[in-house]
């Protein structure tokens, strides 16, 4: 019986899933889409007085919402990178545990 087939967890697949979230090896990754979007255009913020005094409530709310969206996109990118790191550390933990199990079995 091949040693790799006996594994419950397929470690390269776990790492590949993490990479697929952040890197463009196979198609465009979610992080790349969000990276592209997170560079908001220069004139995305309207400026508080661009609609005159009467338009101030609207423009101030609009620019506030632009700020929300920017923060949301960048925090999502951070979160996806965190997920990748967590998948990698999970794979590492599994590897360590398996190695210890093998050592224990050998010793017994």
């Amino acid at each position: 019986m091949n040693h790799d087939e006996a594994r419950i967890h397929h470690l390269p697949a776990i790492r590949a899933l993490g990479d697929a979230l952040t890197e463009d090896a196979e198609g465009i990754s979610p992080v790349s889409y969000l990276d592209e979007v997170s560079g908001f255009p220069q004139n995305m913020r309207m400026g508080l007085w661009s609609m005159g005094v009467l338009g101030f409530p609207l423009t101030s709310k609009h620019d506030e919402i632009v700020g929300y969206a920017e923060r949301r996109v960048s925090s999502t990118i951070e979160g996806l990178r965190d997920h990748r790191d967590r998948l990698y550390s999970a794979a590492g933990n599994i590897q360590t545990a398996e190695k210890r199990n093998e050592d224990n079995v050998r010793r017994i």
């Binding site: 889409y33 908001f40 255009p41 995305m44 005159g52 996109v73």
Partner: peptide, 26 residues
């Protein structure tokens, strides 16, 4: 109402479209 520039709003709308498409694709 004199300083109002509708083009500013159209540009902002273009930006929102781009953000929506990117977030949806992700």
């Amino acid at each position: 109402s004199v300083p109002a520039d509708p083009q500013v709003m159209h540009r902002a709308a273009d930006g929102w479209s781009a953000v929506g498409n990117g977030v949806y694709a992700a």
